[in-house]
């Protein structure tokens, strides 16, 4: 294990990405200290999902650098794999493996990537299922669970790999309203334990309560970056003001 605690968890410098002629990310600079909780918000198409997908190599980018701890992404495949191993990701559509039980969803990477023996992997998986409060569902299949339960399994699955950084890509956007809370509760618990988190979300209550930085994106750029208090009370950028107005009223 390398000593990265004095380094920021994530450092994004002059990041640029194009889809063909479309400039999705424009000169994005962002430093995220270890242990901080960042909420990224903004109108759809502003590049927020693309940005966090660049952080674990799911999206390629054309210019700039992304550094996770001491590892610079994209230098080579081995480094990217290493960085990916330290990053957990939770998707909007859960993306659980439908042919595997809840327990096997959690143990697959432990066994194949970390070569952990079956017993050890299963007890670790059960520990994290306990933590997201669904230990009793371990032997069911994803299709037998509610959306909120599936997303909590997805969080447990990511936590099993002992990530230093958790990425959430609109984790509650595909959920029925009454299931949003159970997922946000798990995420809030995680934040209180000091996990470094980057979360793309429109849950402004969560941002206000949990985040220590709110990043607002518009048309591929970060146009405002502030503490939640400042962001929600006195947003400086007009685009952020109008976004908050439509969201809060």
């Amino acid at each position: 294990m390398t000593h990265t605690d004095d380094k920021p968890a994530v450092q994004i410098a002059s990041l640029n990405k194009w889809y063909g002629a479309f400039h999705v990310l424009k000169e994005v600079n962002l430093t995220i200290p270890s242990g901080s909780r960042v909420v990224i918000c903004g109108p759809s198409g502003s590049g927020k999902s693309t940005l966090i997908r660049c952080l674990n190599g799911l999206e390629a980018y054309q210019q700039g650098t992304v550094t996770l701890g001491t590892i610079r992404l994209g230098d080579n495949a081995r480094e990217t794999a290493l960085a990916r191993r330290q990053t957990g990701m939770v998707f909007q559509s859960f993306n659980l493996f439908p042919h595997l039980s809840v327990l096997s969803n959690c143990t697959l990477a432990l066994r194949r990537v970390l070569s952990m023996p079956r017993n050890e992997a299963e007890s670790l998986a059960r520990h994290f299922l306990e933590k997201v409060r669904i230990p009793e569902q371990a032997d069911k299949y994803p299709a037998q669970l509610s959306g909120g339960q599936q997303q909590r399994v997805a969080i447990a699955r990511a936590l099993c790999m002992n990530p230093r950084l958790m990425l959430f890509d609109e984790p509650t956007s595909a959920l029925d309203p009454e299931m949003v809370k159970e997922v946000l509760d798990v995420m809030t618990g995680l934040a209180h334990e000091g996990m470094t988190m980057i979360c793309v979300t429109h849950e402004m209550g969560f941002a206000r309560e949990v985040a220590d930085q709110v990043v607002f994106m518009d048309q591929g750029s970060i146009v405002e970056q502030a503490s939640p208090l400042t962001f929600f009370t006195t947003p400086s950028h007009p685009r952020a003001q109008s976004f908050l107005n439509t969201l809060l009223h």
Partner: peptide, 15 residues
Amino acid sequence: IPNGQAEAARALGLG
């Protein structure tokens, strides 16, 4: 198979 399946596998570090 939805794209998300391969993405989840990659995000978990599977080769």
